[in-house]
């Protein structure tokens, strides 16, 4: 069966196997930022945006993407917020093996886009669906906090 979706702003048609998950389809078409970690929806390495909402693409049936917008990290590489998040993650030392980093970046991106809650607890909650075994999440939280502070300063300056 064939699905048609909008991937990173462009229409994409792809032949899928029945029962296949969105994670496999995205990797088949070269979206290598989408990582396989568990395929049970627990680790968050395969997080992508479905109509702007973060989802674990391993537990989303590929057929579900038909007629929807899918955004992967590849589609956000030019986005100023994503670039800021990436920069802070690197500078703060939040990237060790890096396998969970794309999923975390998508989760944080979605959080900053959607929520006004920039408290430390809210940032921890935003990251809680993305398991990392290398770090203790300290540097990621520092990175997220810096981005949060930048936004608060900006909005403070504008008002």
């Amino acid at each position: 069966m064939k699905i048609e979706m909008e991937l990173n702003g462009r229409p994409v048609a792809h032949e899928i196997a029945p029962g296949g998950n969105l994670l496999s389809v995205l990797r088949e078409i070269g979206q290598f930022s989408v990582k396989l970690g568990c395929e049970t929806g627990d680790c968050g390495s395969c997080t992508v945006l479905l109509d702007g909402e973060p989802v674990n693409s391993c537990v989303v049936a590929a057929a579900r993407a038909h007629g929807h917008q899918i955004t992967t990290l590849e589609g956000l590489l030019g986005d100023p917020l994503m670039k800021e998040l990436q920069h802070e993650m690197v500078v703060k030392g939040a990237v060790q093996c890096g396998y969970c980093s794309p999923g975390m970046l998508i989760s944080l991106y979605a959080h900053f886009k959607a929520s006004g809650d920039l408290s430390e607890h809210a940032l921890r909650e935003a990251l809680t669906g993305n398991l990392c075994r290398c770090t203790g999440y300290v540097k990621q939280l520092e990175a997220a906090q810096t981005v949060a502070d930048n936004r608060q300063n900006e909005s403070g300056g504008a008002s």
Partner: peptide, 18 residues
């Protein structure tokens, strides 16, 4: 800067399965 951090944070195809 960690020498591989930017490519990892960009999700480049760098692991065995990529």
């Amino acid at each position: 800067d960690k020498v591989d951090a930017f490519k990892l944070a960009r999700g480049e195809a760098v692991y065995t399965d990529d």
